[in-house]
Design a protein around this nucleic acid. Structure first.
Length: 261
DNA sequence: ATGCCTTTCCCAGAAAGA
């Protein structure tokens, strides 16, 4: 079984690239982030025509997550009750959804950006991470392969950014964010470390600006975190940099994980 | 070459991304 996660930065704009990529790679389950459409506007038909089902949790304009599967979709959870909301309590954003596909439980996560460390969005990011970690911790135990994957908007170590000196005072690298990331893995979710198809570190994101991609100015901020049954089934994992190339790419590349279940 | 920002709202330019 092949499972992947990809921040696609708008399903409307990226639709042909995503369907072509699914067919090219034969991926069974794809978790996506930043669909940027309401549920009624999600283009499910092009996926159904190539043999996939879609479950989407969107809100329009911002955020939006989905699970796209050709091995079935069941037990869909959209959001979680303890989500702190932003900018106000009760204003829930579409950033997390779970589904069971082909005997594997997956969650697609789009962690808040944080903007700057002194912005209210940063505090929201930390609160959201604590809440989602608590919610997901109940699903880790047991024999069912389980993985939380998506755009975590955290670089857990200095090796996960192209130049740590450029990130002093910025979000994504602060100690509270890194502590929050460790708290997720501490509940029994293992970082399925992908190999880079080119280069010495598996970056997953490159800014659109300044030619960041071709200059190697990347970040590793997307992750697949699997419980022990998931981790033990992994036969390969890689970042598909090719998906970041060419005309009209997302600014993120997919992480692909092959499982021998 | 892998190439210099993109997407949403909507029609001008601000906000957001990370």
């Amino acid at each position: 079984m092949r499972i992947a996660t990809w921040n696609i930065n708008s399903i409307t704009t990226r639709l042909p690239r995503v369907t072509e990529w699914l067919e090219l790679t034969g991926t069974d389950i794809l978790c996506v982030q930043e669909t940027k459409v309401a549920d009624t506007a999600f283009p499910a038909l092009p996926f159904e025509e190539i043999g996939y089902e879609v479950a989407h949790f969107g809100q329009g304009r911002w955020n939006g997550v989905a699970v796209i599967s050709k091995v079935g979709i069941a037990d869909v959870e959209r959001g979680f009750a303890s989500d702190p909301g932003f900018p106000d309590v009760g204003t829930l954003e579409a950033r997390a959804m779970g589904a069971t596909c082909g005997g594997v439980r997956v969650w697609s996560l789009y962690v808040p950006n944080g903007r700057t460390p002194d912005d209210p969005h940063y505090q929201y990011k930390l609160e959201w991470l604590a809440a989602v970690t608590k919610h997901l911790s109940d699903q880790v135990a047991g024999a069912t392969p389980f993985a939380v994957m998506g755009d975590f908007n955290i670089a857990p170590t200095d090796a996960d950014v192209w130049d740590p000196a450029k990130f002093v005072g910025a979000t994504h690298v602060t100690e509270p964010e890194r502590t929050a990331f460790r708290a997720i893995t501490d509940v029994g979710l293992h970082d399925v470390f992908p190999r880079a198809l080119k280069g010495d570190h598996p970056f997953t994101y490159w800014d659109y600006r300044d030619g960041a991609f071709h200059r190697g100015m990347g970040m590793r901020i997307d992750f697949v975190l699997g419980n022990t049954p998931f981790k033990d089934a992994v036969s390969d994992s890689y970042v598909d940099r090719d998906a970041r190339k060419g005309k009209g790419p997302s600014d993120h590349a997919p992480i692909v994980v092959d499982l021998d279940l």
